[in-house]
């Protein structure tokens, strides 16, 4: 199971990649999360331009037997979504940290970033289930 140390994580299993200027956040789900879900069959992504709050459910990932909400790790505006996943949702299973990214948010509140977990803290949470 991979948990890249350069990323930030949420308790609800999303990873966040923060751009150099701290304003652009790319979001996906962790390797652990995709493994738990099993084969992803469908992804519902937010509309670009939508304003979201940290902790708000903004996307849905479906496997054959479950559907999971994906929460925005920070507040801001959705500026881009990974449309390739609409036709090839398996990208989330095959490459959760690259091809499987879900959406990008322009962060409005830098303080929220401090509340995200580092890889070590996330691994601990994931292992405890």
């Amino acid at each position: 199971m991979q948990t890249p140390s350069e990323l930030k994580y949420s308790r609800s299993h999303e990873w966040s990649q923060v751009s150099a200027d701290g304003k652009l956040i790319t979001v996906g789900i962790s390797d652990f999360a995709q493994d738990q879900l099993g084969d992803v069959v469908f992804v519902e992504l937010p509309e670009p331009g939508r304003k979201v709050n940290a902790g708000e459910a903004v996307a849905v990932i479906e496997s054959v037997k479950t559907a999971s909400d994906i929460y925005a790790p920070v507040s801001g505006e959705i500026i881009e979504v990974n449309e390739a996943l609409l036709d090839a949702p398996e990208g989330i299973n095959d490459s959760p940290y690259e091809a499987g990214w879900l959406f990008k948010i322009r962060s409005e509140n830098p303080a929220e970033l401090a509340e995200l977990l580092d890889a070590a803290a996330y691994i601990k949470i994931a292992e405890e289930g």
Partner: peptide, 13 residues
């Protein structure tokens, strides 16, 4: 198929 839309999976959603 596409059962994830249904009540036994999604419950209140």
């Amino acid at each position: 198929t596409l059962q994830a839309r249904e009540q036994h999976i999604r419950r209140s959603k």
